[in-house]
Design a protein around this nucleic acid. Structure first.
Lengths: 356, 356
DNA sequence: CTGAAAGCGCTAACAG
DNA sequence: CTGTTAGCGCTTTCAG
């Protein structure tokens, strides 16, 4: 199958170029691949011949020999989610500058899909992985990648016992800051809502399978505890994807003892909560206050604009790409954890709780 | 470099498996690759040996022989743009189901970046391309891809004289529908704003380099012309990225003769226009009406929600992947153009023009 | 600095 | 059904 799929004409190879330039295959390869030592005269002749024949290097063949594909496997939840899209852009810019391509796979937060993607990418001999692990517990395929010598960088979520570099945001601090902000405004009954799946109702200390959400919960509950609020764990609402974000929002806002503020664990939850609050005919912030994670575009467009916990998403991606590329380049030492700061951006969606 | 990058242990190859199973390399390969004919007995032995040795097929080596990499090159404007993100998701789902991976590259709408990406992907021997061409005029690199026998599907934008399948939305009709909707509400002075770069002020008949924007302009101007509006071309405002969307918005809304309605060529322009209108202290739709292309999330969250021209973005991506995969599979015949419908979704951002 | 030869891991004829 | 023998296009010793 060495023929051009289109024209039936064979594509020019190093051999062809060598022949045309009247040098050996090895010399031509050296001139073309810009390695080893070649005299200027020969180099020119080879390059001219290559030009003339329309020579195009075969990266596959090169990879077979060198063991490097200059390709990074990126396995994320869903490229349609603005968080992942922006992080991917950060990865892409850094990777591209370093000469790496990206193979993209969506896991939809399913371990099985993630595993399948990683296996496939392993077969394709990617040089390393950037993954937002679907589970921080079931990480077998990531361990496999590591065992095969492919460095892995964990993005946005830590995973217990994985010897992999990790780049995350300081979710605990961000969540605590948001919670304290609400507390300071006088709120005592605050709901934290996330789509993350979790078998039981959340109980203090549960491992929720995603460190970013877990950390947010920790920051949230500890700020509540600090303020003397009883049973903070009861304010954590998971499974919002399965149960319906609107359903949960209606529940926490309903009788007998409605919350006066909601923290949305990401911008998708935030927009759904916002929508539901509006459908309920409630006013923000007069009837209910809202804080969402991520400074998504829409949050500054609504009336009122939404107070958010902003994360350096692009930088999260860029930094993980830098780490990975360093590892691929052979950087040694133990796995490190990079934590980037989150900042609270105050806008108009937080006010005093309603007096009844 | 046949050693495992991590452990220094050699990875198991077909040869190793063959040896362990006491069969020839060819037989082992047949059993492993599930082609040719192998007796059940042998197959089991081989698979057992493979399991034991932790054999992992090398997709690179396979591609070298078969000439197929099962990889699609996706070259889009910017993965962070929700339009591209959603289209990419459509591509990804179809591709994955058919056993293809995606290599992703952002062009930022620059021909040079697009060309560089395509060259690199050609080197990597992708089986085909899905591209949102940065220019419908300068398509040399796409022609190269075609010449090398790699099918190309054009997504969202046509390109003159390219023998490539094309999947686009019916932008002319969508724009015309939006314009007529505004006309019917009584508007006569309507601005069309796009970020697309264009040397001169737009003149009727100009080739603007992007067929989707070009078609929208055509639909827009012809609807205006139908309604007897003079010099429709003067209402087309390009270069909004370079000049600043806010600058242009302020200009068309300023003296001496402000427009009473704006059509935003995509949701990014739409959000910037919305923001500027609000900064100007104007009310939608009382002072100015607004229609944006794409049913982006934020458009239903604002007050009032925005009337939009909705496109089947996911399907645009999915369909182009289907077309490409069919071509890769050898489907013959001439290049075809697929046109998907757009629909106007009426919300609250269109009203009668203000009376002064 | 250049060339010859071997080999990366796999598939693809071609015999048997 | 199975084995033998060639490659795919490139890099990489090892000589010279």
């Amino acid at each position: 199958m060495a023929t051009d799929p289109g024209t039936g004409r064979r594509e020019a190879t190093v051999s062809d170029v060598a022949m045309a330039a009247r040098v050996s295959k090895a010399t031509a390869a050296r001139a073309l691949g810009d390695y080893g030592a070649v005299s200027d005269d020969v180099r020119d002749r080879v390059q001219a011949a290559a030009e003339r024949l329309g020579y195009r290097p075969n990266a596959l063949a090169k990879s077979m020999n060198t063991g490097k594909s200059n390709t990074i496997g990126v396995v994320i939840g869903d490229i349609e989610n603005p968080f992942f899209a922006r992080a991917t852009r950060g990865i892409s810019d850094v990777a591209q500058a370093a000469g790496f391509d990206l193979i993209l796979a969506n896991s939809d937060e399913e371990v099985d899909a993630e595993t399948a993607a990683i296996e496939l990418l392993l077969d394709k001999r990617v040089d390393g992985f950037i993954v937002t692990p679907a589970s921080s517990i079931e990480t077998r395929s990531l361990q496999t990648a590591l065992a095969e010598g492919r460095p892995v960088v964990l993005l946005d979520r830590r995973a217990a016992g994985m010897e992999a570099d990790t780049v995350v945001a300081d979710n605990a601090s961000g969540a605590a800051a948001a919670t304290r902000h609400l507390l300071a405004a006088g709120h005592r009954r605050i709901a934290f809502i996330s789509t993350l799946g979790h078998g039981e109702p959340y109980a203090s200390g549960d491992d929720v399978g995603s460190s970013s959400v877990g950390d947010r919960i920790d920051g949230f509950t500890s700020a509540l505890r600090e303020a003397g609020v009883e049973d903070p764990a009861a304010s954590v609402h998971l499974n919002a994807r399965a149960e319906g974000i609107d359903v949960i929002t209606r529940k926490v806002l309903g009788d007998p003892d409605p919350v006066t503020a909601i923290i949305a664990s990401d911008s998708l939850v935030g927009s759904a909560v916002f929508r539901t609050i509006r459908e309920l005919g409630l006013a923000i912030p007069d009837d209910v206050s809202l804080i969402a994670f991520d400074d998504a575009d829409w949050t500054s467009l609504t009336t009122p604009p939404i107070t958010v916990v902003s994360q350096p998403i692009y930088e999260l991606g860029a930094e993980s790409a830098r780490r990975l590329i360093a590892r691929i380049g052979g950087a040694g030492a133990d796995a490190e954890e990079f934590v980037l700061a989150q900042t609270l951006i105050e806008r108009g969606s937080v006010g005093a709780p309603p007096t009844r």
